[in-house]
């Protein structure tokens, strides 16, 4: 536990020396939300319907990128090699990362949803539930980023995993077309992609108020995906390498 917390602290300290990255993490999603609102200035219903979705998608994408690149950098700089010769366990390293970027994700989700709800006037019935799902989406992005970084040898490859992992999920999650209207193969595929459940949750949050069993189910599935991806990430981290 001490080593997990020390790792999370170290990752946040690294981030704290990089002011521009902090600004990007905190401000970028809010800026994009603002842009989104005024692009659909003529049809505010679109912002009302898709806006909440964006609150989940931006942190998911950004955290995926940030985490996978950071982890690949750890690998290429030789610090991972050193860490693996210390008493630090692989699970502790992965959890430390998850925790640090979870904190960053929390700040990001708070900033972007506060901007959307109170500055841009996005109408949601249960703001805290929107925040909750935004944070869970961001943590999911972090967890998938950690998992995928195992397959990237260079930062260049890690960046290109973003379109590979994120864009198909975006297309299939029900944001652009209802999942039920897709060919069966695609609909079944979307059933096993975590972002589908995030999109489903934000759709529900846009329509209803309160926190029903439907949302609880989405939340449980997303949390399960986070745990599975983190477990996978610590298993794919090899102590002995060729």
């Amino acid at each position: 536990m001490t080593r997990t917390l020390a790792t999370a602290r170290r990752v946040l300290q690294q981030l704290s020396h990089d002011r521009r990255s902090i600004a990007l993490i905190v401000v970028l999603p809010s800026l994009l939300m603002t842009l989104f609102k005024y692009v659909f200035d003529g049809s505010p219903a679109v912002f009302g319907r898709v806006g909440p979705q964006m609150l989940g998608i931006f942190p998911f994408t950004i955290m995926f990128l940030v985490t996978s690149v950071t982890m690949v950098r750890e690998r290429t700089s030789g610090t991972l090699e050193r860490l693996l010769t210390t008493p630090l366990r692989r699970g502790e390293l992965i959890l430390g990362y998850g925790l640090a970027f979870g904190v960053a994700a929390l700040v990001q989700a708070l900033a972007s949803s506060a901007t959307a709800i109170w500055v841009l006037g996005l109408d949601v019935n249960t703001p805290w539930a929107v925040e909750l799902f935004a944070v869970v989406d961001a943590v999911l992005g972090t967890a998938l980023g950690l998992l995928m970084s195992a397959f990237a040898v260079t930062e260049f490859q890690a960046v290109q995993f973003m379109p590979l992992i994120v864009i198909p999920q975006l297309l299939l999650c029900g944001l652009f077309a209802a999942r039920a209207s897709m060919p069966t193969v695609l609909e079944r595929t979307s059933d096993v992609l975590p972002l589908s459940y995030a999109a489903d949750a934000f759709t529900t949050l846009g329509r209803t108020s309160g926190f029903g069993s439907h949302l609880a189910k989405d939340l449980a599935i997303l949390a399960g995906c986070c745990v599975a991806a983190l477990a996978g990430a610590s298993l794919t981290l090899r102590r002995r390498t060729p």
Partner: peptide, 10 residues
Amino acid sequence: TQNSSVYPDL
């Protein structure tokens, strides 16, 4: 390790 494997941004 051969390369100075410490964190440059700390």
